[in-house]
Design a binder for these strands. Structure first.
Lengths: 203, 203
DNA sequence: CCTTAACCGGACCGCCCGGTCAACTTGTTA
DNA sequence: TAACAAGTTGACCGGGCGGTCCGGTTAAGG
């Protein structure tokens, strides 16, 4: 997936793939305080090997997240051409919540300067979301007093809310996405009490 | 103001008060992974003294939280008698978000069996919220396909969402509370895709 | 004022974390 | 197949954590 195939030995490439898979699973299970040792054990490799491939735990996390962000950006781009912009935005938010299950935006908050590639991908994703939001607003599906930054911030709230129910039925987050999305619709809204945050302040 | 004044020496009482104040401040600043050593330093006492008053860091956290929960329950009780049930619920949610600024429900999630008094207080708070929600629904201010558990789960979402903006203007959470509350109102809603969680599953 | 028990504090313990390193193994290539 | 570079590994390090403990301190009561 990640195109760092610069003369990588066969076993090293295998280990790297296993490591990324294990890290993704472990971060999903235990959140972002999963230990590097556990990830290494899960991948069946030594801890030193982890740090050979990624100099820092944060870099490993960034690599895992990069794929998801790019994936999401691609989906957003596809949905830009959808016939119903309101439904497109909802579908995007649904996919976003579904894909990141556990991981919330906190990795994006931390990743200010950590990883240049991740920052770029994040910026592309945010740009696509902006298009989605503006189209939905132009179509009258979404209230006009919100910004794309608002949507980005609210994006992972459904997962977070549902995470407080330990034995949650699968897809409980859809319930809260529906409620929040209803709050984004323009039916009988009242003016918002606080101006939106600056777009650059999100990460 | 916890009434454990059972023959407590003067200096001990003073230290206990300072400790509680420092813990509240420190937990608010650094989140719930604030270290006991830092709290002790902030209170101007030794680390051993902390553990003399509270056998566990979790117990200290529970003591800090207990006041807020009782406080919130009292407010909810007061608002039960308000003329406009919809406005009362909104005011409650506003106060809840305002009071807990940083601390989210995670301490309530963890505190399953930790502290009996906290569990009782939490149950009382949840009961009051249920009354508030039902009254708002009876008045037609809130959609009828949501439950009090939904409201409890959504209660701290505004703070969490706003916390992703590092240099957030004061009260940014009000913006997201307004959006979410609009999603709770009965104007042109669509049916929710997932049944609500069991009330007992929250903590 | 003196005794005493309650209280205080910080050195200390065991644990786990992210990260390093030098000795060892293995894929590659000529 | 030989020889080397690339890769692997787990012991190890420094640091921070929650929690313990005992020698010194101090408020309280007669």
């Amino acid at each position: 997936m990640t195109s760092t195939d610069r003369h990588l030995r066969a076993d090293a490439a295998r280990n790297r793939a296993a490591l990324l898979a294990a890290a993704e699973a472990e971060f999903a299970d235990r959140g972002l305080e999963a230990s590097v040792a556990d990830i290494a054990r899960r991948a069946g490799i030594g801890k030193g090997t982890v740090f050979r491939h990624f100099p820092t735990k944060e870099d490993l996390l960034a690599a895992v997240v990069l794929d998801r962000v790019d994936d999401l950006a691609a989906l957003a781009r596809r949905l830009t051409a959808a016939a119903d912009p309101g439904a497109a935005l909802l579908e995007f938010l649904d996919a976003a919540a579904d894909r990141q299950q556990q991981l919330d935006l906190s990795f994006l908050r931390e990743s200010g300067e950590v990883n240049a590639r991740l920052s770029e991908s994040r910026a592309r994703l945010f740009a696509q979301i902006t298009v989605l939001v503006e189209r939905a607003q132009a179509a009258g599906a979404i209230r006009t007093d919100i910004t794309a930054t608002d949507v980005i911030l609210l994006m992972c709230a459904p997962n977070h809310v549902a995470s407080f129910v330990p034995a949650a039925p699968a897809g409980l987050w859809r319930r809260y996405l529906a409620i929040i999305f209803d709050g984004l619709r323009p039916h009988g809204v009242r003016p918002l009490p606080t101006p939106p945050p600056e777009p650059g302040q999100v990460g």
